[in-house]
Design a protein around this nucleic acid. Structure first.
Length: 220
DNA sequence: TCGAGGAACGTTTAAGATAC
DNA sequence: GTATCTTAAACGTTCCTCGA
């Protein structure tokens, strides 16, 4: 069995199912994917709750807001001015190309849609892949800082390698399956927060402890 | 002209320092 | 030993600068 499947089984056995991503609709998930850039999820929840409280969490309503109004509502998520611009770019894309309907977007081929998403201002690889996987059920693996840190500390791939190289590793060795990719990425986040922390990693209690690379102590 | 590298953005969090 | 305060680093992406 390849190392990535071993890691998945160990993490799943230890943490159990994570049931990601929180969000009532694909649109809410997409908004969350943009808002969660560079911040923790609890801040994103506050921002989304603000939008819900004002009954504005829909493509049409949000598209009608000014940048200032939007920034004020999403303030708890941090980088609010930057993220307001990014949300507006995404909303314009959604309205213009898919008539404001996430289900129209979901009908697009995954590869083509990813290319289009990456052309939207403010959407990079991780955000695009989060939208594809969690909002639109496309079998695309999401690579984040936790994934890179865990793989590099276990000698599977150096942390400095490009995003696409990490993703290719998963696409080549783990069968393309939405629920599997969903669960696996969520387990990486859980393990990264619980054990494989940036500073002072808790390798002793980690379920992946027996797979540690000799360069575990390397700063990543 | 193109690619690489670094700064900037706003907030949280962990770690270290200080006071009591 | 505990509580409080301060500081530095991290997070993902865009944009600008610099060198080849």
């Amino acid at each position: 069995m390849n190392a990535l499947l071993v890691i998945y089984r160990k993490l799943y056995r230890y943490f159990g199912p994570q049931k990601w991503w929180p969000g009532d609709t694909p649109f809410e998930v997409a908004v969350g994917a943009i808002l969660t850039q560079s911040t923790n999820w609890s801040n994103v929840e506050n921002a989304i709750q603000n939008l819900k409280n004002h009954d504005l969490l829909s493509p049409h309503d949000m598209h009608g807001l000014s940048g200032k109004e939007l920034a004020l509502l999403i303030r708890p998520a941090g980088y609010f001015n930057v993220k307001a611009q990014r949300l507006q770019s995404f909303l314009s894309f959604l309205m213009n190309d898919y008539l404001g309907k996430m289900e129209n977007m979901a009908g697009e081929d995954a590869g083509r849609l990813r290319t289009k998403l990456l052309r939207v201002h403010g959407i990079g690889p991780e955000t695009a892949d989060s939208i594809l996987l969690y909002a639109l059920d496309k079998p695309v693996f999401v690579i984040d800082a936790y994934t890179k840190r865990i793989l590099s500390r276990h000698g599977i791939m150096a942390s400095g390698r490009p995003y696409d190289e990490f993703q290719g590793l998963f696409h080549d060795s783990v069968r393309r399956n939405v629920s599997l990719y969903n669960e696996y990425h969520a387990l990486f986040v859980r393990a990264g927060k619980t054990f494989c922390r940036r500073t002072n990693p808790l390798c002793g209690g980690c379920p992946l402890n027996d797979m540690l690379s000799p360069i575990c102590s390397e700063s990543v």
